[in-house]
Design a binder for these strands. Structure first.
Lengths: 338, 338
DNA sequence: CATATTCCAGAGAGCGCTCTCAACCGATTC
DNA sequence: GAATCGGTTGAGAGCGCTCTCTGGAATATG
């Protein structure tokens, strides 16, 4: 096996070949301005000739920066590995943003608690990353706060459930849900139920809150079933709802996946959509366009959520002060299911 | 802002507090056996008291290891960010395996070519990672070969399209497809079409090859439409197929997502499944159980594919010789669509 | 009891890089 | 012509860690 580590050219080699000092070579490599053009060129061609690539470890050792950001995801998050591509979207956004500034993305999964939790904490507080983005937290996870307290720049994706000063980016889930439900009401629906998301996640909680608010706005009774953002849970919840109130004429599902499950359950129960029951989802995933019928849904900019989280954490790492809350806009996309 | 980097305890501090030399402290931290128990304990409690975490950069600098592995994914891969969770499954597998040995996962996306390609190459050959797992390559991507030649341990996820000595892990796509088609034939189907995957990816190519082989085995004519593994393309391909041969009575789709699209197209064309047309998919994604009707499909162990890739690359990084090809078993899961 | 052997801890040399500080040099100013 | 000055370059000190090498204590051997 080739040991790539051993025979790699060092700055010293570059300097020698260019006939300058290591310090000057370093300046050129790092783009310092105060280097004479012809020396600069000499160094650059030495870099080229030798195929020099800076040793990140050595650099980190002195700069105390690692140029990498951790993306921490709760491994058990049903959304992460279920059939909805929320996870992928976030990763994509974060990745695009980091790539633009030549930072690396270190991905870490954590279990609900215990050893893997500690591992992430040790790793992040150990100065291996310049910051961390934490997403898809369940319950009152203490990790964000702990890292933050340890001096690691942290940004969360989604509102935290505990009182905390850790900044986050999210959409206004409550408001978006409210809008969705009002759309149902405005189009003449009278008995609007909801399939709520998991009640240990802010997205689940806030969307339910929005639904409740909209119902109260118009003096109506709530009809709630709780799912976990997956298709199956959506189908199950829909059946329950139908059992609870056979006359319901609309459903607001807190995710597209659950909405699709609901669509299926409705079909199996012999209900026509939207004639008998209108359905609104949340997310605007790719597949929402292809359900039968195509799904009316609340679009949230998932990739942008990732991008913004990355941007914020980079700013923090750069010593900037950032807004504690950043909300991105949503949009109600009307299709044939309402 | 708290600068976490500056006030972190060093090994020197630990040594001092424990009243030993730095070398001994290092031995304890790295689990060397030749340290007297009571000294060992003293060091450990100093570590505990100070909250010492080794500085990875310093360690890497001398060991020439980074304890991290790059997972490189083609960003444009339709599978990566489409509605099928292949990507997530691979990540999950790799992540689980790396976590077990306390290595980090560095995720890198690459565009079809150009700057991001170079970036990955520079990064990986620059000794920032101990190895790389490359997956979802399109066409004859030179990246795996280039990295490998540069001395970076590389394992691919999926057969390479070019002649190369880079090892890979995969399922036997051709054989699996053949089995699936034979299942269709065995259950009395006569006109079996296929919705092939993209022909610039080995999974797409090999599954089509398997289909063709099965058809030839039984002296039948092939009927092919090509998709790109997505739902939409599956629906589109199905319509074409129906146009080409309205009497077809079975379809083998090279992915579950395409199979679902096909199911939808068939329904819209007024065909009953499986009465008029049988459908077989590939992957056995979660949603395959919930399609209407539930999908017969070829199960491939996606998470294990990720796991094995990680295991192989770790072995390579450890200097071991590994098998150039590792094929994991598939299984035909029979449900109601056939 | 002297010598050989084993075992364990410490000293010290770097790993490759950045960055401060001093040195230098040609050019400007008095 | 001497003093000053902006602009470059080089020397060298570390960043925190691992690991080899050496010395000394403890144990075994003749």
């Amino acid at each position: 096996m080739v040991m790539s580590g051993r025979d790699r050219p060092t700055l010293e080699n570059v300097a020698q070949r260019a006939g300058v000092s290591r310090a000057t070579a370093s300046r050129v490599v790092n783009g310092s301005t105060s280097v004479a053009p012809q020396i600069r060129d000499k160094v650059l061609s030495a870099v080229e000739a030798l195929g020099y690539v800076p040793n990140q470890a050595a650099r980190s050792l002195v700069t105390q920066r690692t140029d990498s950001i951790a993306l921490v995801a709760s491994e058990t998050a049903s959304r992460v590995f279920s059939d909805d591509p929320f996870f992928s979207g976030i990763i994509r956004g974060v990745s695009l943003e980091l790539e633009a500034v030549d930072k690396q993305l270190v991905l870490m999964m954590v279990g609900p608690s215990g050893p893997s939790h500690d591992r992430v904490e040790r790793y992040a507080t150990g100065g291996h990353v310049d910051g961390a983005i934490i997403f898809s937290m369940h319950g009152a996870d203490p990790l964000p706060e702990r890292l933050s307290r340890a001096g690691v720049p942290v940004v969360c994706n989604g509102r935290l459930l505990i009182q905390s000063s850790v900044p986050y980016v999210d959409v206004d889930n409550e408001d978006a849900a409210r809008t969705a439900v009002h759309h149902l009401l405005d189009t003449g629906r009278r008995r609007v139920a909801t399939i709520a998301g998991p009640q240990d996640m802010s997205a689940g909680i806030d969307r339910l809150k929005g639904y409740r608010a909209a119902m109260q706005d118009t003096g109506r009774r709530s009809l709630v079933a709780v799912g976990d953002f997956t298709r199956q849970s959506g189908a199950l919840a829909m059946s329950q709802l139908l059992g609870d109130d056979p006359d319901l004429d609309a459903v607001f599902a807190a995710s597209d996946a659950m909405a699709e499950g609901a669509l299926r359950a409705l079909r199996q129960a012999g209900r026509r959509v939207p004639d008998d029951v209108a359905v609104v989802g949340f997310d605007d995933m790719d597949f929402a366009r292809d359900t039968e019928p195509p799904l009316t849904t609340v679009r949230q900019p998932i990739t942008d959520l990732g991008r913004m989280a990355a941007r914020q954490v980079l700013r923090m790492a750069g010593g900037e002060q950032i807004e504690p809350v950043l909300l991105l806009p949503t949009e109600l996309v009307k299709r044939e299911s309402t």
